[in-house]
C-alpha cells in the first residue's frame, strides 16, 4: 500500500513540477526550470545563481563575501596542485590522464561515456587515473580527492557550463534517472530535492535558508564550515538524503552520477566557479 502511494506521489510530483510535460526534451526542461527560478527571483541576475543561497539572500551574502577574501579552500587548492605535479610510482602522473589544457578540464565533466554506458565525473576520472597507473584509489567524498578536484575546478573557473544535451536513448535514460531522483519523495520524512530546492527555495527551514537548485553543482567541491573541511558534490547529496532520514547512496553510485548529470544539464549556461565556500 505504502509503495503504491509513494509511486503515485512521485508521479504527481513530476506532473506538478516546473518541468510540466513528462515527455519534454531536456532543452525544454532547461527552459522551464531556469524560467521558474528567473521568475521566482526577479532581482537575481542569471549569472549569480552559481552562488547558491547568497544569490537570493542579501542578508547572509555580506558575511560570505568577507569569508571569500581569505578563502577557506585555499589550502586544498595548494594541496591539489602538489598532487597534480607529483608523479606516481610508475613515473606517470595525472597530467598523462587528463589531456589538453588544465583550464579546460573541469568544464568537460560530467559527460556520457558511450563505451562504458556510464556518466563520467571528475572525481571518477581522478581515481580511474590512479588505478590505471597501479595506485590505490582515494576515498570518494573528502580529503585528497576533494583537494585535487578543487585545484582542477579553480583552474577551470569562468568556463561555461556547456554540457551536451542528452539525445541518444541511453543518454536520455541516464538523464531521466537523475530527473526522477530529483523529484521523487524519499525517506521517512518523505521529501524530494525539489520540495526544498525548487518549491521552497529562498525560504527558511529552521535556521537554514534553502538554496535554489539552479547552479547547484557549479562551485563544487566546497569548503563547508559545518564540516570543517572540503567535500564533493556527492558528499552533499548524501547529507541531504540523510536529513530526510533516507539511506544515502554511495558516492559515485549510478544514482548520484545520474543526479549530478541532471543538475548540470539544468545549470546550462551558467559558469563553473569552484571551489566554493558555504556555511
Amino acid at each position: 500500500m505504502k509503495i503504491t502511494m509513494t509511486a503515485t506521489i512521485a508521479a504527481l510530483a513530476i506532473s506538478l513540477s516546473p518541468l510540466t510535460a513528462v515527455q519534454a526534451s531536456p532543452a525544454d526542461d532547461v527552459k522551464a526550470f531556469q524560467g521558474y527560478f528567473k521568475n521566482k527571483f526577479k532581482k537575481t541576475p542569471f549569472d549569480d545563481f552559481v552562488n547558491g543561497i547568497y544569490a537570493v539572500d542579501p542578508a547572509s551574502r555580506k558575511q560570505w563575501e568577507e569569508i571569500e577574501e581569505f578563502p577557506p579552500y585555499e589550502l586544498a587548492v595548494e594541496d591539489g596542485e602538489a598532487m597534480w605535479n607529483k608523479s606516481f610510482a610508475n613515473g606517470k602522473g595525472y597530467k598523462d590522464c587528463f589531456k589538453g589544457k588544465l583550464e579546460d578540464i573541469r568544464s568537460q565533466y560530467p559527460f556520457y561515456d558511450e563505451k562504458a554506458d556510464t556518466i563520467r565525473t571528475i572525481e571518477g576520472d581522478i581515481n580511474k587515473c590512479r588505478t590505471d597507473n597501479g595506485e590505490k584509489p582515494l576515498k570518494w567524498k573528502k580529503g585528497k580527492i576533494a583537494a585535487l578536484s578543487a585545484y582542477i575546478a579553480f583552474q577551470g573557473r569562468g568556463k561555461p557550463i556547456a554540457i551536451k544535451m542528452p539525445s541518444s536513448e541511453k543518454e536520455l535514460a541516464w538523464y531521466n534517472k537523475g530527473k526522477t531522483f530529483f523529484y521523487a519523495k524519499r525517506g521517512q520524512l518523505n521529501m524530494a530535492c525539489a520540495d526544498c530546492h525548487v518549491y521552497n527555495a529562498g525560504k527558511s527551514i529552521r535556521a537554514d535558508k534553502l538554496s535554489p537548485a539552479l547552479g547547484h553543482p557549479s562551485h563544487f567541491p566546497v569548503y563547508r564550515s559545518k564540516w570543517g573541511s572540503m567535500g564533493t558534490l556527492h558528499r552533499r547529496y548524501a547529507g541531504c538524503n540523510k536529513n530526510v532520514r533516507a539511506k544515502p547512496f554511495k558516492a559515485q553510485s549510478d544514482e548520484y552520477k545520474a543526479l549530478e548529470y541532471f543538475q548540470v544539464v539544468m545549470s546550462s549556461g551558467l559558469k563553473w566557479n569552484g571551489p566554493g565556500a558555504r556555511k
Binding site: 506521489i9 521517512q188 520524512l189 518523505n190 526544498c196
Partner: peptide, 18 residues
C-alpha cells in the same frame, strides 16, 4: 497532510511512523 495536499512537503507523521 497528504490527504489535503498530495504534494505537500509536510511529513506523513502517522503512516511513516514518525
Amino acid at each position: 497532510a497528504r490527504v489535503n495536499n498530495p504534494n505537500t512537503i509536510m511529513p506523513p507523521f502517522a503512516p511513516h511512523g514518525i
